[in-house]
């Protein structure tokens, strides 16, 4: 199996500009630092061709930021991204250069299908715009081309001449998927792509993702807060906490033998259809701020197993069994 994507020590900082009040205080000698959000902090992993990698973690842990960098729509602060061993990532400082060939090969599908569709454009134009612009198809083939793609995502040909508001949430998500597929991508970043859908529609869209993967040999980075969905479709799972990866393993392994205390707690907290599960043993405490992360292991203020070492030393990320990595002092 070849690696289609390599993520190498990728970081992203957002700098919150200091407000006027702090600027004034600064003039008088007091120094207020700019607040830096370490949204993604030195993240590395590979994705093999045809694989579905699931990304889980609490709100604000950096999933979307990571996804957007991989999709080429957000420059990196540092690190490197390779697609088929070709370097394509750009950086913050002005020299952000698109590799437009690779940008097309990696597409992103968002949570809210409506806000990402132009309300004044007919579906036929929404879907054919990018492939015509990039000269992947000629204008005269447009109709035939769009028909074929609508077919692939389970929408009728009559959808072509309608506008986005004339569709239900599930159908709009299909249109969003069709638009992404129109440029023949190999890799798709799905960011909470089913979260906004009705429960009975979610299964339909998940099935579509599964079918397209088969038919078109796609690779997915699948970001979701729904751990049940991740367990169903992911081959491998990446667990993030405060901008960092704390654990990675195959889906089978991570759900049967989670190693990191955070992963364990996360999985235990998921409500299931088990009517006998009466007791929740939740993770205590709130999600800390990525502006001032805790010392040592970022999880220590909430961890049941925390020791003095966890407060002072950062645990290293190491292989605990074949292809299963975890960052916790309990492993040393």
């Amino acid at each position: 199996m070849t690696d289609i994507l390599k993520v190498l020590q990728v970081s992203k900082n957002f700098v919150k500009p200091i407000d006027i009040a702090s600027k004034v205080v600064n003039m008088f000698g007091n120094f207020y630092n700019q607040e830096v959000v370490h949204a993604v902090d030195n993240v590395s992993f590979n994705v093999t061709s045809g694989e579905v990698v699931g990304v889980v973690g609490e709100s604000g842990c950096g999933k979307s930021t990571l996804g957007r960098m991989i999709a080429g729509i957000l420059p990196l602060t540092s690190g490197k991204l390779d697609f088929h061993d070709q370097h394509y990532s750009g950086f913050d400082e002005g020299n952000y250069k698109h590799n437009s060939h690779i940008d097309l090969k990696i597409q992103m599908i968002f949570q809210d299908p409506f806000s990402s569709l132009n309300p004044r454009q007919k579906i036929i134009d929404i879907i054919s715009e990018a492939p015509i612009h990039h000269k992947l198809i000629s204008k005269k083939d447009k109709k035939y081309f769009v028909k074929d793609i609508l077919n692939k995502v389970g929408l009728g040909t009559d959808a072509m001449d309608r506008f986005p508001h004339q569709f239900s949430g599930g159908q709009r998500q299909r249109i969003g998927i069709a638009r992404a597929l129109a440029v023949s991508p190999e890799f798709i970043v799905c960011d909470e792509s089913i979260a906004a859908l009705d429960v009975s529609i979610q299964a339909q869209v998940i099935n579509l993702f599964l079918k397209l993967r088969q038919d078109l040999n796609l690779t997915y980075l699948f970001i979701s807060h729904d751990i049940g969905v991740i367990q169903h479709i992911a081959d491998r799972v990446v667990v993030m906490y405060l901008g960092q990866i704390v654990e990675t393993a195959s889906s089978d392994e991570i759900f049967s033998h989670p190693n990191h205390p955070y992963t364990k707690a996360l999985l235990q907290g998921v409500p299931t259809l088990d009517t006998k599960k009466k007791i929740y043993t939740p993770i205590k405490g709130e999600i800390p701020s990525p502006i001032n992360p805790p010392s040592g292991c970022y999880f220590h203020p909430r961890c049941k197993f925390s020791t003095n070492k966890c407060i002072t030393d950062k645990p290293s990320y190491k292989e605990v069994s074949p292809n299963h990595f975890s960052a916790c002092h309990l492993n040393s």
């Binding site: 609490e58 709100s59 907290g269 929740y280 939740p282």
Partner: peptide
């Protein structure tokens, strides 16, 4: 809410 916080609230 997040899964983790949801667990706390349900509990």
């Amino acid at each position: 809410l997040d899964v983790t916080i949801q667990g706390q609230v349900i509990y």
